[in-house]
Design a binder for these strands. Structure first.
Lengths: 119, 119
DNA sequence: TGCCATCAACAGTAGATACTGATATTACTT
DNA sequence: AAGTAATATCAGTATCTACTGTTGATGGCA
């Protein structure tokens, strides 16, 4: 805890594949944000239209606290934006730059379903 | 078993957004598989070309055990395929439908850099 | 046949995080 | 001003998972 200096020997990829390793480091958090089914549900709901926390709570059936809890990391990653409106907070997807490849992967879901990748 | 990625059974969303919720449930495991930076690095490396476990171990600088450990869930999700070749196991991305988006992500500029979404 | 290389599976541990209930904060309403 | 609706934050717990070291299994090679 205090005796050990947390020097994670993440030797900063230096090989010819260093760029890819770095890219993975940069992109992983984005995927992680979508790796939870509840957070992904929220993002998919927002891909339809902007919604307030209350709407998200109703649509998902989750506790308000939990919805808010999941929105926090999405916010900090810049995947969603907040716009106070009245006493509600309207959430929206950030942009397409990241969601475009996501859509491509999303379309893959049917293919890989049941591990039946028939390509 | 850390290879299990599925979660506890949820009460099957029944609202008008049930389809989206279900879709999130189906899709989350895929994103989860890519949410770890080491696993994502492996996938990105495989998007370049097929590689043996040894090659992946060298390219990532990870312990062989860890690489094998990460390959297991990718295998079970059907995201990668294995082809024994001599005493090596050659891994490859499941299909082009999956390779294409991953290539796109691998070649993605630093535009989506953390919180730097300027849209 | 012994030896080595390659890879996967088996515990065990440390750290992360999803979820809950309670509380604080802000903005609208009457 | 008081009340209420809408969100966010604060602990606390339980679960999950990434990582390690070791062991086991399999396929070439001398």
């Amino acid at each position: 805890m205090d005796t050990q200096i947390d020097r994670k020997p993440k030797p900063v990829a230096a090989g010819p594949d260093g760029a890819l390793i770095d890219r993975a480091r940069d992109l992983a958090p984005q995927f992680k944000a979508l790796s939870d089914e509840n957070r992904l549900a929220i993002v998919l709901l927002l891909s339809e239209r902007d919604r307030t926390v209350r709407e998200l709570t109703e649509a998902t059936g989750l506790a308000q606290t939990l919805v808010s809890h999941h929105l926090a990391p999405l916010r900090e990653l810049g995947l969603v934006t907040v716009t106070p409106q009245g006493r509600s907070n309207v959430y929206a997807l950030c942009c397409d730059a990241f969601t475009a490849p996501m859509r491509a992967l999303a379309g893959l879901s049917n293919a890989t379903e049941a591990a039946g990748c028939d390509c």
